[in-house]
Simulated scan of single mutants.
Amino acid sequence: MPITPGNAPRTPDVQVGPIDLVARVDDALAVQALAFGLSEEEIGVRHHIVLRHLMYPGCRSFGATTPEGRLVGFVYGLPNDRAHWWSTVVEPYLRRQDANGWLDDVFVITELHVHPSFQAQGIGRELITTITDGVSQPRSILSAIDVESPARRLYRSLGYRDLARQVHFPSAPRPYAVMGAPLPLPHRPSPAPATD
């Protein structure tokens, strides 16, 4: 089988499990800075945003750690509330696509990042399937930069489909796509179709 993001062999000693993201917020943002290319100023802004999100009811966080305790990936999310900032930004785009209902009874993947040295090993897939396995909502929604990327390919392999594209968040330099998938997500990637 060809190695693609999400189906490469995972580093065996990396463990995925619940983490206290309040205590590990600096470690998580260091991973996000490397994976997503954040400046020091952006890290400072996101620090406050993450801590605020963690206070919302139903917020969950999981991390991927080495045996030494090094955080090499993390995910957090929460049940959507139409009053949350993210929801108010994406709602007009979803409404134009007749997908506005995706903002109700849905679990939002707020952030998912894996350290570049640990990408393409299945860690992102394990993080997102683990966090969504324990939620009561029947579907999940997220936003990702609207370019073809390993992240978008991973999300598609999990059943996410584009709900709206060219979504512009204030102060974000690039447009995003909003993607949604029914739950539960598949834990293993679908086999590649046979070719002649």
Rank of each mutant, 00 (worst) to 15 (best):
Y56K: 09
A30N: 12
A64K: 00
Y93W: 12
V89S: 04
E41N: 08
C59S: 10
A33G: 02
R60T: 05
V89N: 11
Y93P: 02
E41F: 05
G101F: 09
R46C: 02
R70H: 13
E91R: 07
T88I: 07
L51W: 05
V89K: 07
G37N: 04
A28C: 01
F36P: 01
P79Y: 03
V72Q: 02
V31T: 01
L103G: 10
F36K: 02
G73L: 08
R96C: 14
R95I: 04
G77S: 07
A99N: 15
R24Q: 13
H48A: 13
L71W: 00
V75I: 04
S39K: 05
C59T: 07
M55P: 08
L38C: 14
L71S: 04
E40W: 03
P67H: 03
G63K: 05
H84M: 13
L78P: 06
P92Q: 06
G73C: 00
H53F: 07
T66Y: 09
R46P: 10
I49N: 12
A99T: 08
L38K: 07
L78T: 10
H84V: 05
I49Y: 15
I43K: 11
A64C: 06
Y76T: 00
Q97T: 07
G73N: 07
G58A: 04
Q97P: 07
G73Q: 03
L29M: 09
L103W: 11
H47A: 03
G101C: 11
N100L: 15
V25T: 05
E42T: 03
A30T: 08
V45C: 09
P79V: 04
T66H: 06
Y93N: 10
V89R: 02
W102V: 01
A83T: 11
T65P: 09
N100Y: 15
